[in-house]
Write a protein that binds this DNA or RNA. Structure first.
Lengths: 233, 233
DNA sequence: TTGACATATATGTGCGTACATATCAAACTT
DNA sequence: AAGTTTGATATGTACGCACATATATGTCAA
């Protein structure tokens, strides 16, 4: 048997993971220093360092200067989920994507938008209701507010062709944001658009984005019961 | 003005991020090679490499050998959320944590557990219902199935003291898993435990974990309306 | 006993070099 | 024209060295 790649960062990572999962080191336990691991494995400290940094990044170990590296106490720490664009989500499931703008107005923001984005109550915004459709069935209802100050081009964007969603992603860079997931019940607007009844349970995704200190947009996305978000650990 | 740390990996990252956000490079555009960036910035290629790898890891750019590095088309790609242990979740909000085992039995798994974990219908499992309580109010209802084959110690675990949740996290290493989030309505069991009515909308978190090929546990966690998961982008 | 200070140590980051590897593109064959 | 080989190129990884930085711990003086 040949050993084509004696030691690589990935091998070291897997080796360390195996030792963690085997129970050789208990959660909270201190593992050997980079230097001694490097000596033991027979590679440069840099390589061990990279491997450990990745493990730390994935939440398997916790590192602290001078103290050393220890096995994470709660390994269930991080879940990374991919949030696709609605179009891709639908087309990925084999559906035909369409969208409809149900409302497009230029008004002052309601309280929740003011609070969420930190915007003045007198600053006009673009307010959009759009319905995303999969094979002629309502898939998601979107209630979006866009700052005109941050994105003046929004007022003349071609939303007959491309959805606000995609237009913003493509045209407006952002530096940070927030997603939140919860349950709510359909009000009349949502129920009408989604062809369901008032009071029905909906999966609600709220998202806001900023470019540094400037708020760009905030939106609520209503998915029907049955919608499901999955993440691998 | 002094310049204490002329160039660091973090500085390069931020600098590149700034250039991405400024619109200097459009989404999909190719950015200069590591070598030329290193020359431009005046540092080693290694350093640029590390910075770019982190940006790629965070989903800002996409890298491909020989092709080069390009700005990600859909920067809203990844959301990382921290999934705390229920106890920490409750105590973090200032509540007093308690839990109650409502049911503990040793039975063969129902279909959904067989399917989810890939377990035979004849393999006995431990089935637990537990209620997590914050300041004497029901906070979350948990319906858990544990493989006895993978975790024989479960049958004699001290669940009068420590919750199954914490016991498993502390005692049983795992190598992979899956979380999923959705909406459901309360059945009688859930409604009773959570002191709500049948048919009420609930936020449902489902989780399964494995140690390599061996399934360990799968569970459903029911949170009441109002529960909210948040992730920063 | 307590607080200020010094020192040792483990991780964090940087440099320059070398070679590995994937892959685009051009040259070459059939 | 279509497939095959070959070379060039950008990223991927590794090494060894050096120095930065945080911090646990021991030392010494008030």
């Amino acid at each position: 048997m040949k050993s084509p790649k004696p030691n690589s960062q990935t091998n070291i990572q897997n080796d360390l993971l195996r030792r963690i999962h085997s129970g050789e080191w208990q959660p909270g336990a201190l593992i050997p220093t980079e230097a001694s691991l490097a000596k033991e494995i027979g590679c440069a400290r840099t390589t061990v360092n990279r491997a450990l940094q990745k493990l730390a990044n994935d939440g398997h170990v916790v590192r602290k200067r001078r103290s050393g590296t220890r096995i994470a106490l709660t390994p269930v720490r991080k879940a990374t989920m991919e949030i696709p664009i609605v179009r891709d989500e639908i087309e990925g499931k084999g559906g035909a994507y369409k969208f409809l703008i149900l409302l497009s107005e230029r008004v002052k923001p309601p309280l929740w938008v003011q609070v969420r984005l930190g915007i003045s109550k007198d600053e006009e915004m673009v307010h959009l209701h759009s319905l995303h459709i999969s094979d002629s069935h309502p898939y998601m209802f979107e209630d979006r507010w866009v700052s005109i100050k941050a994105v003046p081009e929004i007022t003349s964007a071609p939303f007959d062709k491309v959805s606000p969603n995609e237009w913003l992603v493509r045209e407006v860079p952002y530096s940070g944001g927030e997603n939140s997931f919860s349950v709510c019940t359909a009000d009349e607007t949502v129920a009408n658009a989604m062809e369901t009844t008032v009071g029905k349970a909906m999966f609600l995704v709220e998202r806001s984005t900023w470019i540094y200190q400037t708020p760009i947009t905030t939106l609520k996305m209503y998915y029907p019961e049955g919608f499901r978000l999955t993440t691998k650990l």
